[in-house]
Design a protein around this nucleic acid. Sequence first.
DNA 1: TCTGGGGTCCTAGGACCC
DNA 2: TCTGGGGTCCTAGGACCC
Length: 260
Amino acid sequence: MEDVGIDEAYLDVTDIPDTNEEITGRIKAGIKEKTGLTCSIGIASNKLLAKIASDMQKPDGVTVLMEADVETKLWPLPVRKLYGIGPKTEEHLKSINIETIGQLAALPLEKLLEYFGNSYGQYLYEAARGIDESPLVTRWEPKSFSRETTFQEDVRDWQVIARTLADLSKDVVQDMQGHQYKARTITIKIRFSDFETFTRAMTISDYTDSEEEIRKAAFACLKRIELKKKVRLVGVRASNFQDRNKDDQHHSSGLGIKLF
DNA sequence: TCTGGGGTCCTAGGACCC
DNA sequence: TCTGGGGTCCTAGGACCC
């Protein structure tokens, strides 16, 4: 099972001999018993289609979406239904008269790469055809920890901003320590009252989970933003974690070799 | 549709190295 | 000092997801 947030998950039932009805029946009964809630389930040959299917019969439904159904059931849907297409891409596609997944699938790959870049273009090409080879991710390592707060009222007072930044740094550090991660990169985020948002990052030479070091880095970043407007939001993020699989990470030995 | 808080991934440009 | 090609690392911002 792959968790996706608090109320979604993908289950690989490939090797479970029971019928779809038996499996979905047990899942629904179990969820009902433990939470009192209903759920909607999509059954498909990959995650992309399963997610779309789960959305097709909303309260308490079960929907099967097979590859053979792509043309009849997937293609009529608006592009926005595809995972990975948000408001911006929806608008972009609309501007070139593409509103359904079928119309998207009619676009040649070269066009998609041209409009959306190699990575995203290739993704859209496959997604529009219901193709998704992505595996279930049952365990993963976090890549960052962050905390942010929006003020009740926009703030001009530097003291308030500074204290908030320090508090957030502390929270991030506690998160890191609790999960035993050390980071090299600290990023702060400042959003002004007009929603203009800036980030400033600093990468230090040694991995750390020290509150003082991380707070200092955060403040060094803060200095690089001119606070000329009222501030709505402050955030702190730590990333670029030390690889915990390597128990010893001394950077480099003092050995250099030069070949002539 | 928007807000809020927590994330991930991608891109582009710059600095630097060989 | 410039050109060219290849690479890494870092930064800033944006799109997207739940």
